[in-house]
Simulated assay, not measured.
Amino acid sequence: MTRLSPTEYLDHIRSESARFRAVLAGCDPAARVPACPDWDAADLLWHLGEVQWFWSQVIGRRPAAPREDDPRPDRPGDTAGLLAFFDESSGALVAALESADPTEPAWSWADEQRVGFTYRRQAHEALIHRLDAEQTAGTTTPLDARLAADGVAELMEVMYGGEPPAWGRFEPGVGQVDVRITDAGETIRVRPGTFVGTDPESGKAYDGPHLLVVPEPSGAAAATVAGTAADLDAWLWKRAGDAGVTWDGDEAARDGFLAAVIPPLD
């Protein structure tokens, strides 16, 4: 229920990227990024530029998957070069998405293998890194409430959750949790638990906290976490504390939820 239209996602990619660029253009390139302390402002500028370059390539070459030996851009050595690279990358991403139907097949690292995944994911990528840029520069502006509400949903559905692949399994934990987005009138119910399995391609074993969205909830949840879309989105992305987040209900269900959303996201 939180999804935006492809046109709206694309508008947000444009506007959030433009704000990100404007903030970092006037920021000390050595300023530390509060949410990513290993990065400075120049690293942040390079990161989003490289991300947008990568996804422009994915969409431009759809439906082929990227290859490990594909050439990648070299990092420019100064702020002017980084800004120029970002302008080129961001423009290429917007142009690629403008020329693609969201329903077309396209590679992604998630279950959704369509262009629409990149529309949504890159709108949220730009939003959160715009917030990073503003926090780095010491001046913040509000998050768009509708986009932030969808950001909370994406975190539950994709970033911290999702159906396990065929080689893995989900072991349910204690209770279910309602994630209540107060200003959007939306509630997303999730079941905390554990994802277990070994990826046959990489040989990597997984055994850790995970969330599954409950598509048709019935009865009351064991616990509820509530906040505005902006407060929840920034908190879940570790870009803000939990001052705007409230809890109610069973502590074991709460602990299971918190265990699943503890890992930081870049």
Rank of each mutant, 00 (worst) to 15 (best):
M1Y: 13
R3H: 06
S5F: 08
T7S: 15
E8K: 06
D11Y: 00
H12C: 00
R14W: 01
R14M: 00
S15V: 04
S15C: 06
A18Q: 07
A18S: 09
A18M: 05
R19C: 07
D28H: 01
P29A: 00
P29K: 04
A30S: 06
A31S: 08
R32F: 08
P34I: 03
D38I: 10
D40G: 01
D43M: 14
D43W: 10
L44E: 07
L45T: 11
G49H: 02
V51P: 11
W53D: 00
F54M: 09
W55E: 12
V58T: 09
I59Y: 06
R61L: 11
R62L: 15
P63I: 04
P63V: 06
P63G: 05
P66M: 05
P66N: 06
R67Q: 12
R67G: 11
D69Q: 05
D69M: 06
P71Q: 07
G77Q: 09
D78I: 00
L83Y: 02
A84E: 15
A92L: 03
A96N: 00
L97V: 00
E98H: 06
S99K: 12
P102D: 11
T103H: 07
E104H: 09
P105A: 04
A106E: 11
A110H: 00
E112T: 03
E112F: 04
Q113Y: 07
R114F: 04
R120E: 09
A123C: 08
E125P: 03
E125C: 02
A126E: 09
L127D: 13
L127P: 03
H129C: 03
L131V: 07
L131K: 13
D132W: 14
A133T: 05
E134G: 14
T136A: 08
T136S: 02
G138M: 04
L143Q: 11
R146G: 12
L147T: 07
A149C: 12
D150R: 02
L155R: 15
V158Y: 03
G161Y: 07
E163Q: 12
E163R: 12
E163L: 07
W167H: 13
R169A: 15
F170W: 14
F170E: 08
P172C: 01
G173W: 02
V174F: 09
G175N: 04
Q176C: 09
V179P: 07
T182H: 01
I188T: 10
R189W: 01
R189S: 00
V190M: 10
V196C: 15
G197A: 10
T198C: 05
G203W: 07
K204E: 10
A205C: 02
P209Y: 10
P215T: 08
G219P: 09
A222E: 03
V225N: 07
A229E: 01
A229C: 06
A229V: 02
A234D: 15
W237L: 11
K238F: 05
R239F: 15
R239Q: 15
R239H: 15
G241S: 02
D242E: 05
A243C: 12
V245R: 00
A252K: 14
A253R: 02
G256V: 05
L258Q: 13
L258Y: 11
A260H: 13
P263T: 06
P264S: 06
L265S: 01
